[in-house]
């Protein structure tokens, strides 16, 4: 995994990206943010969204241990992507990206976001 600030600028270089925040999922703290008006509350809310998705998926799937690769939210203005990155120590770091619907290519953005942390973070 490249440095945390580099992760952020890498995410923001994805075509159509208009905002990004890295969230420590355990505590809901914004670790780094760009293009997000209120990172503290955004991080808290996005962390809750991800937690709710995990709970819902676990209850709704026959295999309760399904691994969530990313969460895609489609809005009238574009997309939000939430991608968990496993870390050495604590619960995951969430890479949250807001994309402009007119300029972004969702499939490309997902691939690019997956590549952001670099090869070591997948452990």
């Amino acid at each position: 995994m490249i440095g945390i600030e580099e992760c952020l600028s890498e995410a923001m270089s994805i075509p159509g990206a208009v905002g990004a925040v890295l969230v420590d999922h355990t505590s809901g703290m914004p670790v780094a943010a760009e293009g997000v008006p209120d990172p503290v509350r955004a991080a808290d809310g996005l962390g809750d969204v991800f937690r709710a998705v995990l709970d819902g998926i676990a209850l709704a799937s026959p295999e309760q241990a399904a691994r969530v690769e990313d969460v895609i939210v489609t809005t009238d203005a574009g997309y939000h992507l939430i991608r968990p990155v496993e870390t050495v120590v604590d619960g995951p770091l969430l890479l949250c990206l807001r994309l402009d619907g007119d300029r972004a290519n969702l499939a490309l953005a997902r691939l690019r976001l997956r590549a952001v942390p670099g090869e070591r973070a997948a452990r």
């Binding site: 995994m1 945390i4 580099e6 505590s27 870390t87 120590v89 770091l93 973070a121």
Partner: peptide
């Protein structure tokens, strides 16, 4: 042993 980002996140987590 670990990457730059992992070290940063590790330090950040332990400090908090």
């Amino acid at each position: 042993v670990l990457s730059r980002g992992e070290l940063q996140f590790c330090v950040l987590g332990a400090t908090l």
